[in-house]
């Protein structure tokens, strides 16, 4: 016993070091279970309020760019609206407009909650975004985040006033995506190298595609509506010995300059989950 104590006393430095390293590595490895460590991340209100007060100053420097982005998105949406309006006029305007405006028949599948980005990283391997909307504003875990350029990320932790989660630039998160023209779908993931590019996997060789084709969300994941833009094809490669194309996608979202985003709320989620639960029971 005394020998053991003497051993501990003599080597306490190394033992303490190993203890701290073991704790660190343990935390690191278990961090995959995002929800379990809810408290120790940037949706924690103390940490988030530090980011928020700094952001109040720093966002002034981005105002011009944010305004330009928002104006551009506005213009895009206005064009789309005009296209819809013209197409309904061509068919039978009154009936469709009446149907759309009748309040009880409107069943919005997706709603959008605007939010301000108060912290966002893009230089690490696992990048996260923190937003200034929380459970008080109706934000829940597993809601998608969309920016002016398209898909940004997903929410994994929510506090009362803040929410945080991984962006596309996080090797732990993948998003179900498809090629807009051909409707073939695969999974889009980041390889941790360049924050401007991601990779689209699992697209078989017989699919026709061209450089510049748009990649959009597939709508299979309940998180994003179908057809939200993600990026465009930069290069694609038919590597020998592989079963799928290696597709490099240029992301449309500029993560270095992201100020305002929208959180996607899926109103059918509960219904969908109940339905899908029936399948797993049997």
């Amino acid at each position: 016993m005394r020998g053991l104590l003497r051993f501990l006393a003599r080597n306490y430095f190394i033992l303490l070091f190993l203890l701290f390293e073991a704790i660190s590595i343990g935390l690191l490895v278990n961090y995959n279970n995002f929800q379990r460590v809810k408290f120790f991340n940037s949706s924690n209100s103390l940490i988030a309020s530090v980011y928020k007060s700094f952001n109040a100053v720093s966002s002034f420097f981005h105002l011009q760019q944010s305004n330009a982005d928002l104006a551009q998105e506005n213009a895009r949406l206005r064009t789309m609206l005009e296209q819809y309006r013209q197409s309904t006029v061509a068919v039978d305007s009154t009936a469709i407009v009446a149907e759309l405006t009748a309040s009880d028949s409107v069943d919005l599948r997706y709603e959008f909650i605007p939010a301000k980005v108060i912290n966002n990283s893009f230089v690490r391997q696992y990048n996260y975004i923190t937003l200034s909307k929380g459970s008080d504003d109706g934000v829940k875990v597993d809601m998608g985040i969309i920016g002016p350029g398209g898909v940004v990320g997903i929410i994994t932790s929510v506090s009362r006033h803040y929410a945080t989660g991984p962006t596309i630039l996080n090797k732990r998160w993948k998003v179900s995506a498809k090629i807009q023209n051909s409707n073939y779908f695969g999974s889009l993931a980041w390889d941790g190298q360049d924050p401007h590019y991601a990779r689209l996997n699992e697209i078989p060789f017989h699919v026709q595609m061209a450089v510049g084709d748009t990649i959009v969300t597939s709508g299979f994941s309940d998180v994003f509506p179908e057809g939200v833009p993600i990026g465009t094809i930069e290069t694609f490669d038919h590597a020998s010995g592989r079963n799928f194309f290696a597709i490099k996608v240029k992301l449309l979202t500029n993560f270095a300059n992201l100020s305002f985003v929208e959180i996607v709320k899926n109103n059918h989620l509960e219904e969908l989950e109940q339905l899908q639960e029936l399948n797993t029971d049997e």
Binding site: S24, I25, G26, L28, Y31, S121
Partner: peptide, 9 residues
């Protein structure tokens, strides 16, 4: 780590 969501790293 708490600030950067990289607990343990």
């Amino acid at each position: 780590d708490i600030f950067t969501n990289t607990l343990g790293m």
